[in-house]
Nucleic acid binder design. Structure first.
Length: 864
DNA sequence: CGGATCGAC
DNA sequence: CTATGTCGATCCG
């Protein structure tokens, strides 16, 4: 900000966007002070749905802070000392490997969009402007900023702050073009520079600096732009002044060599400037060239790593630069009083949390390193430590392959299911188009919804064959949407935003593999699937590794369909068939499209089809027959066959092992999720009994089963052991296979089939308790469930009384992870301290016991 | 894996 | 009236 005054002192510099605003400032154009700004914003905000949601979020953050503070209270000085030793050991290591040899530059275009708009429309130059819309601003010029108008502020509020504000709509094409011009310059200094959005970039100029030392002066000479497209005549003069006397005083003095032997076309030596060989000079040169080429100014930071460089570029903006010299002390000096909020990666929430600990500056962050290591996750506190030591990446790694692609739209409330479906389809269409541009296919589809109260939720589903087309994506997304619509029924889903994302892209290797091994099968599966209106789910249920997929894809969906149709006694299979044309939430267009697809696909259907469950070839005249066969298979009749084939067919087994796994939704009292529970409960009704308690139990076991199938760790505590026992010796071997554990472990996908058997477990069955290992006659699953709970509690109490060597009572349930993280760290760095392991287990058990005694979700809670 | 949250541009 | 769109990372269950 000091820089602003300096620049503002020059006169006659209409050519410089930013100076205009500053001159106005000097001339007394009033801005607003902070108090007024806040008051106006508050008035415009108060009472809105948006504000209510902001309050809610704020409360959540406060709760997080409160938990953290409680945790802090329980930390003993001894623990703190220990942590201090550990952390400081790490500090020494980090210091030893501190690397100051790179020169990283961060370039940041000043108020980029606004600057471009002002450049292209001189009328705007003297006015406060912002770029964006009435609902959202992307950026503002410095003039507008004095009124509190900032990026990420809605335009209508900005207008209240600054009634004269001109709002210019976004024009990305233009910004892209300008950005490209800038990048052309940057590439000369570092061909591997890393752009961050349109207006920022990192450069590693280490090599350039070396080469530059040998460059002749002429190679460092640059000319003022004499043909000024916007007709700013005084530019040359201003530039000369500026580079001669202003912040560029360290540049080689202009005009010092007056021999004028260097005439090039219209460009003369008087019109040129030579830059030196230091890092500062290089960056001045870059900024000079950017300004000459685009008439836009940039700020820059120079430092030994990216984090510092970024913070430097912020130091003297706008139109300034700052360097941290490659010395440890220079780094630490820079950080000393720097507010942590200035650090990239530390945002509003983290700032607030750290502030609660009395940490505002980076040096305070360093002082509290031991405490932080006990309160935050390993990743977090290591990051904090890096920050407070001024460490960051010293090279620019090109960003890897993209991990997801998404599109989302905000709109005025939409509450009709029909409209929501067509919107969803539209989004899928757009997304599919973009995906195909990059030739990407992904396995996970995520639906994002924001209701009119600004509450956001996402719902994801992972399918086994990657999707990329509109139809494929929509097939998954529409189900997710349907579930959400159901979840609030009979009320309409009132949303203001919808988004669709595809992630879980195949790696190159996987792409090849996919083609070779299972493409043909999946194709036929898909064709069937389309006919059933459940293309991906169908594949999913066939290739499932866990109970979950089967549960959701086949069983669950069929039951849902049945329920929705009120056709209570209809076999599941036929219910699905009905759903084809009676899906109550289908929009007209949706139904029509589906019909089209159906007609289209039926001509392609293979006559011979390999059943995905029993792997036997089925010749099918009609698809219903085929479906029936598959359903029979899925009902568990052919479990053994499936396992045999999996075992013998190596390639297929590998395929299965690389496929994603599934698990149950957790439904912890979350409103949005609650309905899932209901659905699951209702789902059970036709399979076992109509006792709702029993159904809950079933659900719990479904959880257990799926839990098992997506975990592979060694049992490390009672809950893991119990789970293993349950899986290996109790339910399934007894009821389904003959107890071939090894086999069972390796072909987890069969659990999907096993589950259906479990659902059939009825009263009077003999089940083995996974804890006490004794046979229990069950009158109902509820009673069995209760028995297991009792056993678990006994076991816990026993475990607790046996291990008193650790002050577990010092830890609340929330801190277990933190302390756990520390313990792991200690194990890593200091293998000799082996005793913490049991301590950790105990503390976990304590928490879980607390939970157990206070919760109805007994088994499930325990098994989490 | 799925969901929420944070943070950056 | 009117509070973005996209992406990656992390944490937790």
């Amino acid at each position: 900000m000091d820089d602003m005054k300096k620049v503002a002192n020059s006169s006659c510099n209409d050519g410089f966007l930013l100076r205009v605003g500053l001159n106005d400032n000097k001339a007394g154009m009033q801005g607003l002070d902070k108090e007024k700004i806040n008051k106006i914003i508050m008035e415009a905000t108060k009472g809105s749905r948006f504000y209510e949601n902001e309050l809610k979020k704020d409360q959540q953050v406060n709760q997080r802070i409160e938990k953290m503070m409680q945790l802090k209270e329980k930390i003993t000085t001894q623990q703190l000392l220990k942590a201090q030793l550990q952390v400081d050991k790490l500090v020494v290591e980090l210091e030893q490997t501190r690397n100051l040899s790179s020169t990283i530059v961060h370039i940041d275009m000043d108020a980029f969009y606004a600057a471009v708009e002002m450049r292209d429309n001189p009328e705007l130059k003297e006015k406060p402007i912002a770029v964006g819309s009435m609902s959202m601003l992307s950026t503002s010029n410095y003039h507008a900023r004095r009124f509190g108008v900032r990026a990420a502020m809605p335009g209508f509020i900005a207008k209240k702050l600054c009634p004269h504000l001109t709002i210019v709509p976004l024009n990305f094409e233009k910004y892209g073009k300008v950005s490209k011009e800038v990048r052309e310059i940057l590439a000369e200094y570092d061909p591997n520079f890393m752009p961050m959005g349109l207006d920022e970039a990192y450069l590693n100029i280490t090599e350039h600096l070396e080469e530059r030392l040998n460059w002749p002066e002429d190679r460092r000479r640059f000319f003022f732009n004499t043909e000024s497209p916007t007709g700013v005549d005084k530019d040359d003069m201003n530039m000369s002044d500026k580079f001669n006397e202003g912040e560029y005083s360290s540049s080689p003095v202009l005009f010092e060599d007056n021999t004028s032997h260097l005439k090039q076309r219209s460009q003369s030596v008087e019109n040129s400037v030579v830059f030196g060989t230091s890092a500062e000079e290089v960056v001045k040169e870059i900024r000079f060239r950017i300004e000459q080429k685009t008439q836009l100014t940039a700020s820059a930071g120079i430092a030994p790593n990216t984090m510092l460089a970024k913070m430097c570029s912020d130091r003297n903006k706008p139109n300034g630069q700052y360097r941290i010299t490659p010395e440890r002390q220079a780094v630490l000096d820079f950080l000393k009083d720097l507010p942590i909020r200035k650090v990239p990666g530390i945002g509003k929430v983290t700032e607030k949390m750290l502030k609660a600990l009395g940490i505002v500056t980076c040096s305070e962050l360093y002082q509290q390193r031991a405490l932080l290591s006990l309160l935050f996750s390993e990743i977090s506190w290591r990051n904090f430590l890096d920050i407070s030591l001024g460490l960051g990446s010293t090279h620019l790694e090109k960003d890897g392959e993209r991990k997801s692609m998404s599109t989302e739209r905000t709109f005025s409330e939409i509450n009709r299911a029909e409209d929501q479906y067509s919107l969803c389809r539209e989004l899928c269409r757009d997304l599919a188009q973009e995906l195909q541009k990059e030739g990407l296919k992904g396995k996970t589809v995520t639906l994002k919804l924001k209701n009119v109260n600004f509450e956001v939720k996402t719902r994801a589903s992972t399918v086994l064959s990657s999707v990329s087309t509109e139809e494929e994506i929509f097939a998954v997304a529409k189900d997710l949407l349907g579930t959400e619509i159901d979840s609030v029924a009979p009320h309409p889903l009132r949303i203001r935003l919808m988004g669709v994302r595809v992630s879980g892209f195949l790696s190159e290797e996987e792409k090849k593999y996919q083609q070779k091994s299972i493409t043909s099968f999946l194709k036929s599966g898909k064709e069937i699937g389309v006919l059933r209106l459940q293309p991906e789910k169908s594949n999913q249920e066939y290739f499932t590794k866990s109970s979950e997929a089967s549960h959701r894809g086949s069983f669950f969906d069929q039951k849902r369909a049945a329920r929705l149709l009120n056709s209570e006694n209809l076999p599941p299979n036929e219910a699905v068939g009905k759903q084809l044309f009676h899906d109550r939430k289908s929009s007209a267009t949706f139904v029509e499209e589906t019909k089209k697809l159906t007609g289209l696909q039926s001509s392609n259907v293979c006559k011979i089809f390999t059943c995905p469950v029993c792997f036997e070839e089925q010749s099918s005249e009609n698809l219903e027959e085929l479906n029936r066969h598959i359903d029979e298979c899925l009902n568990g009749t052919f479990v053994k066959d499936t396992m045999e084939i999996s075992k013998n067919d190596k390639s297929r087994e590998d395929t299965l092992n690389t496929l994603p796994q599934f698990r149950n939704e957790n439904e912890n009292g979350d409103e949005w999720q609650k309905n899932k529970t209901d659905q699951l409960a209702r789902t059970d009704q036709s399979a076992s009994t109509s006792d709702s308690f029993t159904n809950n139990s079933t659900e719990k076991f479904a959880q257990i089963v799926s839990d098992k199938s997506h975990r592979e760790q060694q049992p490390s505590n009672l809950s893991d052991i119990a789970r293993n026992v349950c899986m290996k010796e109790c339910l399934f071997p007894k009821r389904i296979s003959q107890g071939n554990e090894d086999h069972f472990e390796k072909t987890e996908h069969t659990a999907g089939t096993s589950l259906s058997c479990f659902f059939e477990a009825k009263e009077g069955s003999v089940l083995v308790c996974p804890v006490c290992n004794t046979e229990q006659k069950t009158t109902s699953l509820v009673s069995f469930n209760r028995h297991v709970d009792v056993c678990l509690n006994k076991g816990l109490i026993q475990e607790l009384t046996e291990k008193k060597d650790f002050p577990a009572e010092n830890y609340s349930m929330e801190n277990q992870n933190r302390v756990g993280a520390l313990s792991k760290e200690q194990q890593c760095t200091n293998p000799s301290q082996g005793t913490k392991r049991s301590g950790l287990t105990t503390s976990q058990s304590v928490s879980k016991k607390t939970k157990l005694s206070n919760s109805k979700h007994t088994i499930k809670t325990f098994f989490k």
